[in-house]
């Protein structure tokens, strides 16, 4: 009897978990999934949708699997998000580490390889094992165990092969690549070192972060301009279509619409979704990197709020936030918060 119950139970579990693309296969300690603004405790078997984030605490760890072909290891104190955007060769999966340390071991999982991203860089990969360290100051360190990785930031690319690494500061081009041989990578001490220098000179750090946010905003503005142009063109052609409808009848109108308006309709949707990609990336950056610095500064100066350095920081921070409000917020809504 007990055996039957056990079999039914296993069958139910198997049935309820089949068909999931990205799932958590191992969780150690308390791990959260952030989905549509809500936080849920993560459990093995949970599936992730694009846009969801896996958030580990100081003593927790998570492993994800995609279609059983790739493994993603999210180390403590990390935020990892899967996103998707329209690239030059169609839809591209972007594996984004906002903060913390995440290792990847890829099989042939997406047809086209995913893009690895942090707030300060994007990397194309080919058959690769690599670790991404995203510091709380917005910096990135990439260490390649195998395969080829092309790291790109601010329009400059660096190719990395086995046992090579590179550091990218927020809003800057990639630094000099270096050999990982004989070098023990330790995210905690790297991150602590980066954060110490950030806090020693928060104004410069904030300036770099502002540049990084500007990078996202530039993409949003370019795409938004394109979208606005397309929509204007569409509205203009729609007026002509209306005229043809009135003067020449439904069939002529339909033919005109299919030929002239519909091709524009096919372009606006994907363009808008790309704007959303950059808006959501900006929101992550604002929430976890900029917000983290703000909280730290607030606590440090709470007994000395009139301190000149602090006031200067607040004024700069306000400027950065104003850009965010102006350029990013129009593409966000309550579901994102």
């Amino acid at each position: 009897m007990k055996k039957i119950f056990l079999i039914i139970f296993i069958a139910i579990i198997a049935i309820t978990t089949y068909g999931q693309n990205t799932s958590l296969v191992y969780v150690d300690g308390w791990v959260d999934i952030r989905s549509a603004g809500e936080l849920f405790e993560a459990f093995p078997g949970d599936s992730l949708r694009a846009g969801d984030s896996v958030i580990t605490g100081s003593d927790s760890y998570a492993e994800l699997e995609q279609k059983n072909l790739s493994s993603i290891f999210v180390e403590p104190d990390s935020i990892f998000t899967i996103r998707e955007m329209e690239g030059s060769s169609g839809k591209e999966t972007v594996l984004s580490t906002t903060v913390g340390s995440v290792s990847f071991k890829f099989g042939k999982l997406f047809g086209i390889e995913p893009i690895i991203a942090t707030p300060s860089m994007v990397a194309g990969i080919r058959g690769t094992e690599l670790t991404v360290y995203a510091g709380e100051d917005g910096s990135t360190l990439i260490a390649v165990d195998s395969g080829l990785v092309t790291v790109e930031s601010q329009g400059v690319s660096v190719d990395l092969v086995k046992d090579e690494g590179v550091e990218v500061l927020p809003g800057e081009v990639p630094g000099e690549k270096f050999s990982l041989l004989g070098r023990e990578m330790d995210f905690a001490s790297w991150n602590a070192e980066k954060y110490e220098s950030l806090i020693a000179d928060p104004e410069t750090g904030l300036k770099h972060m502002g540049n990084q946010l500007d990078g996202f905003i530039t993409e949003i503005v370019i795409l938004d301009n394109l979208l606005t142009e397309l929509k204007m063109e569409k509205e203009y052609i729609k007026k002509e279509w209306q005229k043809i409808l009135d003067e020449q009848g439904k069939e002529q109108g339909k033919a005109f619409f299919n030929k002239n308006v519909h091709p524009l309709d096919l372009k606006t949707g994907p363009l808008f979704l790309n704007i959303r990609y950059y808006s959501l990336s900006s929101l992550s950056f604002r929430r976890f990197i900029l917000g983290g610095l703000y909280l730290d500064m607030k606590a440090r100066y709470i007994m000395d709020v009139n301190n000149n350095e602090y006031q200067k920081f607040l004024s700069m921070y306000e400027d950065v936030m104003n850009s965010f409000e102006e350029s990013v917020v129009p593409f966000l809504d309550a579901n994102d918060i």
Binding site: W30, D32, R34, L39, I55, G57, S58, D77, I79, R287, F288, G291, G292, Y294, L295, D296, K298, A299, R300, I302, M321, I337
Partner: peptide, 19 residues
């Protein structure tokens, strides 16, 4: 906290400790 949304327990913990 002010206009900042704290989305992680770790960050709240850090803030209370820092205060």
């Amino acid at each position: 906290i002010d206009g900042e949304i704290v989305a992680r327990n770790t960050d709240a913990d850090f803030f209370w400790n820092s205060l």
